[in-house]
Design a protein around this nucleic acid. Structure first.
Length: 207
DNA sequence: GACACGATGGGCT
DNA sequence: GCCCATCGTGTCT
């Protein structure tokens, strides 16, 4: 069932590199209620002080976790009712995280549907807030170690197409970088799929 | 303390 | 496409 976990070393790399290579891997979540799993089809890279749109642009009590060791879950609340979950990247001391925006549901669809209140598989985990709801992730899961906790990423990868890039969702594109990595398809939150980068000079790792 | 504001999503037009 | 709920977090006084 589970192919084993990606090790912390996988996440101890440049955030952009982790984000690109994370697409296609499976996210798992084990709780007393059961197991749910989904293939990551859409992620976004958020870097440190050089990324104005990242929480880690400034180091605060909330964003401090992004400066910590890699392979740790960073979950926060937004709009008072939705959660967003990230995986901390880079070496301890360097800020960076990958926001998980959408998965293709693979296992535990009934549990996801119960948590979400919908049954359409295409709506179960499309969007960061829906993904968190479907996987039962909340602020209580902030700080979970993917190497030992009830959340992990499988040592697997399946791609059904090319991994494409675009500007990130929900931030002003004129101040943004094309750091969204996604596999186009029915599972991706593509409602406002921005076009491919128009500023290739920015399409390079920072730091 | 007070206050403005979201790395969103559901409902309605 | 437009509206807006809802509350933790960060910033300012």
């Amino acid at each position: 069932m589970s192919p084993g976990r990606l090790p912390p070393e996988f996440f101890e790399r440049p955030t952009l590199q982790v984000a690109e290579s994370l697409v296609g891997h499976t996210l798992y979540r084990q709780t007393p209620e059961g197991l749910v799993a989904g293939r990551l089809v859409e992620v976004e890279a958020y870097c440190g002080p050089a990324d104005p749109n990242s929480h880690a642009f400034r180091r605060t009590p909330r964003s401090a976790i992004m400066y910590g060791p890699p392979g740790i879950l960073y979950v926060y609340l937004t709009y008072g009712m939705h959660h967003c979950s990230n995986i901390v990247c880079e070496a301890d001391g360097t800020a960076g995280a990958v926001l998980m925006r959408a998965v293709e549901p693979l296992e535990g669809l009934e549990l996801m549907a119960a948590r979400r209140g919908v049954t359409d598989p295409k709506l179960l985990a499309k969007g960061p807030g829906r993904l968190c709801r479907a996987f039962g992730l909340s602020r209580e899961d902030n700080g979970t170690d993917l190497a030992s906790g009830g959340v992990w990423v499988g040592r697997d990868r399946r791609l059904e197409g090319l991994v494409r890039t675009s500007y990130r969702i929900g931030v002003d594109a004129t101040t943004d970088f094309p750091w969204r990595f996604y596999e186009p398809g029915p599972w991706t939150s593509g409602r406002k799929n921005p076009p491919s980068p128009a500023r290739p000079e920015l399409d390079a790792p920072i730091g």
